[in-house]
Design a protein around this nucleic acid. Structure first.
Lengths: 204, 204
DNA sequence: GTTTGTGAATAGTTTCACAGCA
DNA sequence: TGCTGTGAAACTATTCACAAAC
């Protein structure tokens, strides 16, 4: 394909394709057609082909996509070809659940630091990660951690976002139901679980 | 506005507007302009006006939107004007975190039942909700619970979805990283937290 | 003067259909 | 024959600009 801006929707689907490729790799599958991969992931075959085509040709007509090649490509595209370290802020119920998440490893992601305001938690380990004082966020710059996860109550979200930005964080996963304002060189992705559930009755 | 199909993207934004209106109501604000509401929520004013316009005229030119009217309208649109009961399946780390979630109440949502496969958890209460045996899912139909939340490991997701559908559940929030197939009269919304984080390095 | 509601213009995304390659 | 890659068409959503309402 010539030159094209890559649709954001395509980027949103790439982790799904990565996960699919990982699964197939574990099962020692060597290659797969867009049709089979589509069935596995619950999407359309032409959508997969179009998405992949934005990044150049990596399939073989008549055969399909080589799994190992797919893995390498997608990891490079998503910049997940090296382990990415993230800092978790807020080790409450949701935060603790994230520390125990086995899924991050699939994407070469690692929660390398955790922070909380609660003195009873600070200094203790949760799922192998030491809980540090919020004030230590400023040391993140020297620890090659450039992603942040906000799982604090709504009222504290903006303040934490500011601290993370100041510490040199470049991407934030915001799990609070609060819009946070950041400089435009920092990317924020907000996921509000309650909002997902709130949308369901409409369709029922 | 004449007749128009409502964009799904509009529906996705409605819970955000509802949350904003709730906050303003608590602060005893009586009315707000699209511009002010937009600033509060981090969206565009014309987007808000367009979204609202799909449901008829509920603003006053020169003044703005009446908060109480807004609340009533959005709740009715999202069918959140009555309390909606949901069943949680999987009371592990993430599931337990959801049981403690204060946010669901904001949207008139209530986790009214919880199920797990682990015998040590069954019969005990977590955050006020009794953990029942997975086999009791079939009783949901008689308990006026028509929403389900799946927070079980990937491998069990489809099986749980099937059980929920069989019990008469109409909407499912799937928090596992697994595509689930359901009859087309059932709506599934999948939220994969790890996928959100996995997308961040791309933008960094 | 201020702010809504909305047709029209623009932008973005998905789907199709098929040429071209293995 | 089977499957990819991709322009073009169809569809969906966002942004604009301004008439009408307060």
């Amino acid at each position: 394909m010539r030159y094209h801006k890559i649709p954001d929707e395509t980027i949103k689907r790439m982790p799904t394709y990565l996960r699919g490729a990982m699964r197939l790799s574990e099962q020692d599958v060597k290659s797969i057609s867009s049709k089979e991969l589509a069935a596995l992931l619950g999407v359309n075959p032409w959508q997969i082909r179009k998405d992949f085509s934005y990044f150049g040709e990596f399939g073989t007509p008549g055969v399909g996509y080589n799994i190992e090649k797919l893995l390498t490509h997608i990891r490079k595209i998503l910049k997940l070809d090296v382990v990415r370290k993230a800092a978790l802020v807020g080790a409450g119920n949701l935060g603790s659940a994230l520390l125990a998440f086995p899924r991050f490893g699939t994407y070469s992601l690692e929660i390398a630091a955790a922070f909380d305001i609660d003195k009873r938690k600070i200094g203790k380990k949760k799922h192998g990660v030491l809980i540090e004082n919020i004030s230590a966020i400023k040391t993140l710059g020297q620890r090659s951690i450039d992603l942040g996860i906000i799982s604090v109550p709504r009222g504290a979200a903006q303040e934490i976002a500011d601290k993370l930005v100041e510490a040199g964080i470049r991407g934030i996963l915001n799990l609070s139901p609060q819009h946070v304002t950041v400089p435009k060189n920092v990317k924020v992705i907000t996921i509000d679980i309650a909002k997902g559930l709130a949308r369901l009755p409409y369709y029922v």
